[in-house]
Design a protein around this nucleic acid. Structure first.
Lengths: 296, 296
DNA sequence: GAAAATTATGTAGTATCAGTACGTAGCCGG
DNA sequence: CCGGCTACGTACTGATACTACATAATTTTC
């Protein structure tokens, strides 16, 4: 069995090819590794390069470049360039764009945008579709929905609560631990509790989830990691994001969580059908009138 | 002057090529339009096609395909495919993935992710870098920072407030209009007020911004549109997003605003230097200890 | 520790494909 | 109806990705 077949066997068709290349770097042939390094050190340059130029950059022969492409699961150099372009559209992955104190505000902006978009792509590819369907199902049937979260996750909970017109039923968001316990205690079978925690380990959130479950409510967890919270939920929506390699890198998981909330609210609104949609349209219109003010 | 030079003149090097193609469709030559339609109707297919195949799909000759590529500002077919790949990495742009009631939760998820990422890319390309630098400057020097916002923008304000350890000074977030007026009245020269409004027209936010400015505070506006709020601010951070074509499409601007807040807080933290970084590290560590709980 | 087998890498060649020069057909104004 | 211009397709060329093969390096086995 050759190296090529071995490697490409466990490389999926999708996914960030630059991440793949970086991950597989150490298992590659010596010359392939040179190519890999050349690409990682300046991916954008490769986009506008031919095989010959890439080979020269890496200090290897042209076929080696092709072999490298095959080794990481691409179908030739062209295919590789296309996938590389897709990776770069999301920005250079985070691991290679660590924020340092030497960065100007604009460099920080670029890196954070890159990081956010790459992470969202990551989360998208990992979101459990079956769990999503079940979550929507539970929310559509719920006579009442409560959101729980602390800190940054509390922000997400409040954001979700503001979308209650889309959910179509009374929604609450508790960010105080005492309130959380009280509300969770009052939940009934059929009600849905959405427990949000980026870390997946926040103690009181886990306890509230358990409490809600004991009372018969369906508990949906939105979390960035496997862990205690995931164990305590009926339905787990894992919003996995790239690893947080640097203390400056802001917590991306809350943004992924917000997107998940968007998805849930939209999917639920759709399921509630036309009648509900009409009233929602009216609401949105009224709100925009309320907000707007004449230009001075 | 030929059509080509005319068009490519106002097409930037970056930006979503699929959006560009769609925007320019009507100004194109008859045959080029055929190519454009073929591409828009199935962009992914083009990625794996040669010039000949594309020509056949569109029902035109091969050079016409090349001419089309040049017409929309690309440097040949290869360059076009690369850019197309980048566009598709962000997902098929929103205008072509309108959410309908027939969509399954997973289709909704895909579309919302696509839409969010495309919009973030959009916002990134449009963010005013000079304004960003000035905003960071003002925040670094501020002895006090206040965030103002209503509704969804209120969520953003609270999120920003939670980042006060990074800003390094007392931060407040007001989401009640009376509170907002009170706090804004008490601001002093040098203080920074950050007024957030997705629409850019929220009346009370505009008034608070004016009030803060009258008191000598520097007012930074984070808004999705030009408008009254932008006019009332010293520094405007425009987080332009794609047009909201559909009532189901969730408000993306709040996510763009959150990313901007991430950028501001990170850039400010970097500028505050090492000493401050240390205390921030400690804080983060303590917090994670507080949060964590043993696996049951 | 040496020879054989296997893998890794470069050389030379080929088929394909993008891009170009040119010629003809359609279109408009005079 | 006829010159001037633009739009489009045909035929061709240059370049580029990919393949077949030979040699060098490395590991394996006795």
């Amino acid at each position: 069995m050759t190296m090529q077949t071995h490697v490409s066997a466990f490389v999926g068709g999708t996914g960030n090819i630059l991440e793949v290349a970086r991950a597989l770097r150490d298992e590659l042939r010596k010359s392939d590794r040179k190519v890999c390094d050349a690409i990682i050190s300046d991916p954008r340059r490769i986009l506008s390069s031919t095989v010959a130029e890439t080979a020269q950059l890496a200090g290897v022969s042209q076929p080696t470049v092709i072999r490298f492409c095959n080794a990481i699961g691409c179908d030739g150099f062209q295919d590789f360039k296309l996938r590389l372009a897709q990776s770069l559209a999301l920005g250079v992955p985070a691991t290679h764009s660590v924020i340092t104190d030497a960065d100007s505000p604009n460099e920080v902006a670029r890196k954070i945008f890159d990081y956010t978009m790459t992470s969202l792509d990551w989360a998208r590819n990992r979101l459990d579709s079956a769990a999503l369907v079940r979550a929507v199902e539970a929310l559509v049937l719920a006579p009442r929905i409560e959101f729980f979260g602390f800190g940054a996750s509390g922000i997400v909970a409040m954001d979700a609560q503001q979308k209650f017109p889309m959910f179509g039923v009374p929604c609450g968001a508790e960010i105080d631990s005492h309130q959380q316990v009280m509300v969770a205690s009052l939940l009934k079978p059929g009600d849905v509790a959405v427990a949000i925690s980026n870390t997946g380990t926040t103690r009181s959130t886990v306890e509230v989830a358990k409490l809600a479950r004991e009372n018969g409510a369906t508990v949906i967890g939105i979390t960035g990691n496997e862990g205690p919270l995931a164990d305590a939920c009926d339905i787990v929506l894992l919003t996995e994001t790239l690893e947080n390699t640097n203390i400056y890198t802001p917590t991306i998981s809350r943004i992924a969580a917000l997107v998940v909330v968007d998805i849930l609210s939209t999917a639920v609104a759709l399921r509630r059908g036309e009648a509900h949609v009409e009233s929602f349209k009216r609401m949105k219109k009224t709100l925009s009138q309320m907000r707007s003010t004449a230009r001075i």
